[in-house]
Design a protein around this nucleic acid. Structure first.
Lengths: 358, 358
DNA sequence: ATTAGCACTCAATAAACAGGAGTGCTAAAG
DNA sequence: CTTTAGCACTCCTGTTTATTGAGTGCTAAT
């Protein structure tokens, strides 16, 4: 059943008012807020019906109403205006994104920190390589007689390296041989394929050579594992305490542990979903998030890698504003990693020319 | 003035009792706890004197006493027994340390996480290269016609890499040339020296070559900056809320923000101090830490690099136990990075053979 | 359909109160 | 001179009770 236009207006007023003040909103407040020329009694009747339909709820009799998850959902899907970023906002974001180029991990980490600062909510950011990621190339660099650096390049253009020590000294030519051995045997393999190949190599090649490359192969599998494991970066966890819904320790504590342990295994959305996605309260699978909402945007890292960046907060969030900021950041991130930097004038065509108060 | 033996015993009893129960301890409790064969009235007199001397304080009239910072300090300096780690504890730590070898950053990060879990306090870990760190070597690896990887090795054996894109295609020989240029001009220089050298190189070498190596040099300075900047890893921030002194949000919030922003610029100790160091409450320089204590141990990463790992908690901490665990972990870390792994039987001669309850 | 009026509900705040743990002091005992 | 028992006093803590006020739901009039 479709809600009447007036009901929608009232629902919207309740939500926007509640988002601002964090207090149950009564009929009188709505009467003022929404431009409706009706008395509070009329509003009361409408609100009672909205409660029956499950869009609003009362913390207790004789308090104002607060939006239910269902109410927020309707708001997000239908009622919410697109939030236009102000010039200041985009400039602030651009400036933050405009930092020195860094390795992918660090970019992601910093982006998370930035979002946390920007939104005042705890933020998370992660990047995940697809399961089909493979090692594209090995490079071995001799450091001194007994140690060398292995540099691994994956087909998603992620680079990892590590220093290895030998028991005995090795020559440049020996090292080169090991390199070709690695490159011929272990490139182009996914994580699953690399195990059997290891066994095969063990029997085929000479034991001495094998024992030398074994640690490198081990390292390679660790890298592939790590890439598929979606290391989650979190930032600004303490921001949670700024918001009145987490003033009581019982509310804050479980969510805090959840965030700081970064056990995002049951993350509500997968990287690759289009557009900013919003998961409201009980829609969350994870128990610790049942009373909170998650807003996240995915970004593209090229070469099949997807990233996800988002914030966690109370169900009472300014969904429009936050998701606008998030998707702007996400777009900026994609740009940075693909183009190797932000265009000097920021991203095109995103912000409102009118300045709006934050 | 030296305290009488009995006063010390009482102070110790108060502290140990308070550490356990987190509640002001009264004369009666002390009479029982300490093995003194005197009545509570006697203890009362002694405690009154200890209060006058500033070792104990009263939250209010007619409550028990709690130790003051001065009291804790005396306890830590003189009264505290060495805590012997139990076999289980060392085994638990060994197991955790025994993870796969990782890059230095990750080892540090994981060590922090482990300590947080182990102590139930928020933990921090960092490693800092000395100011005199230099780039030891550049390696350039061609990926395809328009991109290459630069691998930088510092004299502290830290490796960093990054992918670079060229506007035009480059050949292997060209790249080699750039490599030698980099290695002859920019190795062995500290962060301060690298700036002037950059200017010099700009005027000496051909503009084309210079524009090509410029981003790599930029990257190198970033690496040196990063290494001296002491990136702080924190873990288990939410653990803070487990402890009764941070039940009230006003207490927890500032410390939480401090920790999660990782603004450890005013860290109370420097890496390189020997032994676990303990900073109690108001001894902390930083305002956010005035009501908390910091216990930390430094570890050696070889090649002039020092690390620091520690926890933050209420002044009421089991200093003996926590610092024992920390220094064990610190020792383990030094071992791991220097030897490339933990000895199979754990660290020698550290744990008590008797098993003690945790 | 809308509105004014009114009784009712219930959280939140404050005030009043009893209970109890622990102190400080005094005076007696060792 | 030290130790101890006794006792009045303090002040925190938890509970009860009263008060307030915002907001609702219902009814009756418009």
């Amino acid at each position: 059943m479709e809600l009447s236009e007036r009901k929608k207006k009232i629902l919207r007023a309740v939500i926007e008012c509640y988002v601002q003040n964090a207090e149950p909103v009564g009929s009188k407040a709505v009467a003022q807020w929404a431009g409706l020329d009706v008395s509070s009694a009329t509003i009361r009747n409408e609100m009672a019906e909205l409660s029956e339909l499950g869009y609003l709820e009362q913390p207790h009799t004789s308090a104002g109403r607060i939006p239910s998850a269902k109410g927020y959902r309707l708001y997000v899907n239908e009622l919410m205006d697109d939030y236009k970023l102000s010039l200041q906002e985009t400039e602030r974001i651009n400036e933050a994104l405009h930092t020195k180029m860094k390795a992918l991990d660090q970019v992601i980490d910093e982006a998370g920190k930035m979002v946390a600062k920007l939104t005042q909510y705890p933020a998370f950011a992660l990047a995940a390589a697809p399961e089909t990621t493979t090692i594209r190339r090995f490079d071995l660099l001799l450091v001194d007689e007994t140690s060398f650096i292995a540099v691994i390049l994956t087909d998603a253009n992620v680079i990892r390296n590590k220093l290895f020590h030998f028991p005995d000294s090795v020559s440049q030519t020996q090292l080169q041989m090991l390199g070709t051995l690695l490159n011929t045997s272990f490139t182009g393999l996914t994580l699953e394929e690399i195990g059997p190949q290891r066994q095969k190599a063990a029997s085929h090649s000479s034991p001495e050579a094998f024992s030398l490359i074994e640690p490198v192969v081990e390292f390679a599998t660790e890298v592939l594992e790590e890439l598929s494991r979606q290391a989650v970066h979190t930032a600004g966890i303490a921001n949670l305490l700024e918001h009145p819904e987490y003033q009581s320790l019982e509310k804050a504590q479980p969510l805090m542990s959840f965030l700081s342990d970064a056990e995002f295994s049951t993350l509500p959305a997968k990287p690759g979903d289009v557009g900013p996605s919003i998961v409201i309260g009980p829609e969350n699978v994870n128990e610790a998030l049942k009373d909170s909402s998650v807003i996240m945007a995915s970004y593209d890292l090229g070469d099949g890698m997807k990233g996800l960046i988002g914030v966690v907060g109370p169900t009472r969030m300014d969904y429009a504003k936050i998701s606008a900021r998030l998707s702007y950041v996400a777009k900026g991130l994609s740009w940075i990693v693909s183009q190797g930097g932000l265009p000097p004038n920021g991203l095109p065509g995103e912000c409102d020319t009118k300045e709006e108060p934050s």
